[in-house]
Simulated assay, not measured.
Amino acid sequence: MDFRLTDDQRALRTGLRELLAGRFGRDALRAAVDREGTVDRELWRELGAAGFFALRLPENEGGAGLGLPEAVLLFEEAGRALLNGPLVATHLAAGRVPGAADGARVVTCATQLRGLIPHFGDADAAVVIHGAGMHIRCPEELPHARRLRSLDPLTPLHRIPDGPKAPPRPDAILLTAAEQLGSAARTTEMAVQYAGEREQFGQPIGGFQAVKHLCAQMLVRTEVARAAVYAAAVTEDFTEIAGAKLLADEAAVQGARDCLQVFGGMGFTWEADVHLHLKRAWLRGRMWLTAAESEEIQAEALASAL
């Protein structure tokens, strides 16, 4: 099985990276923080026009007819950029909720955080997922949703009492893992760049063994997670998807922690972006499938293989 990217896949990834670099650079990221994570509707429509949400729809339904591997590449880029908004839910709703595919409507999901709904205030529709099925509801049909203070300043949250509990969607789990992978890759780059620029005792801190080890460990975790995420996108095996989420969560959370250590005191300031990656990684770690649930799936798979 060949896991190498094709030229078309590389072009797809590069196209979105360039779009986000132009439309969601650091200034736009900080503006989103100031807006408390409110979705940029204009950018959302641009993503829709670029095919982000309709990527996996058949061509006769207005989509690109591509698969989960291509979607993983795009969500990895979104994770790198810390793009905010209910990306996974809107992507899943394309073709089922009118306006979701072209970015005209923002769709959130009532199950990804088990009773917590991200971006409820921005949503035009909320989907409730039951296995492979999906029920569409208007936000007005959820009058008891209560705003909570979110750990991530870019992800506003609401809680629904007795929120729905449903089997997790494998593609939703994997796309969230892809976002974690993108964040892990970005914090690794940030750490290496800072280690090459910051000087102590007359030399870049990247010359010190302890800093080298931190950066090397970040890279190893990221590349292991990348292999797992890409492989799961090809096989679409649920056990492999759960394992990929577990590895990507670890790479994103621990990578952001290590990046914080490389930055030192500067990393603890509001001006540095490291804390935004760490907070988002913590939150994504609770989405769709937690580490404990992923570990149980792996344990059951190993037990059944004995």
Rank of each mutant, 00 (worst) to 15 (best):
E59F: 12
E59N: 08
N60H: 13
E61R: 15
E61L: 15
E61C: 15
G62I: 02
G62Y: 04
G63F: 02
A64Q: 13
A64H: 11
G65F: 02
G65A: 03
L66T: 10
L66Y: 11
L68D: 09
P69E: 06
P69K: 06
P69G: 08
E70H: 10
A71N: 08
A71H: 06
A71W: 01
V72M: 02
L73N: 02
L73G: 01
L74A: 10
F75S: 07
F75Q: 03
E76F: 10
E77W: 14
E77I: 04
E77C: 02
A78C: 15
A78W: 13
A78P: 09
A78D: 07
R80E: 14
R80I: 12
R80S: 13
L83K: 00
L83S: 02
N84S: 08
N84H: 09
P86G: 00
P86D: 03
L87D: 00
L87P: 03
V88G: 07
V88I: 13
A89D: 04
A89K: 02
T90Q: 03
T90A: 00
T90V: 04
H91N: 14
L92P: 00
L92I: 06
A93P: 04
A94Y: 01
G95M: 02
R96D: 08
R96N: 14
R96L: 11
V97H: 07
V97Y: 05
V97C: 06
G99W: 09
G99E: 06
G99D: 01
A100Q: 02
A100S: 11
A101Q: 05
A101E: 00
A101C: 01
D102E: 12
G103Y: 00
R105K: 12
R105D: 07
R105T: 08
V106K: 03
V106S: 07
V106P: 04
T108D: 08
T108S: 13
A110F: 09
A110S: 13
A110I: 08
Q112I: 09
Q112L: 15
L113N: 11
R114E: 14
R114Q: 11
L116G: 11
I117G: 03
I117K: 06
P118E: 08
P118H: 05
H119T: 01
F120T: 03
F120E: 04
G121L: 11
G121A: 12
G121H: 05
D122P: 04
D122L: 05
D122A: 06
D122Y: 01
A123W: 01
D124P: 02
D124M: 01
A125K: 14
A125I: 11
A126V: 14
A126L: 14
A126K: 07
V127D: 09
V127W: 08
V127Q: 08
V128E: 14
I129L: 15
I129P: 10
H130A: 15
G131D: 09
A132S: 14
A132C: 09
G133Y: 14
M134W: 07
M134Y: 09
H135L: 15
H135S: 13
I136M: 12
I136T: 11
I136R: 09
R137G: 04
R137N: 06
R137A: 13
C138K: 12
C138A: 11
P139H: 00
P139R: 03
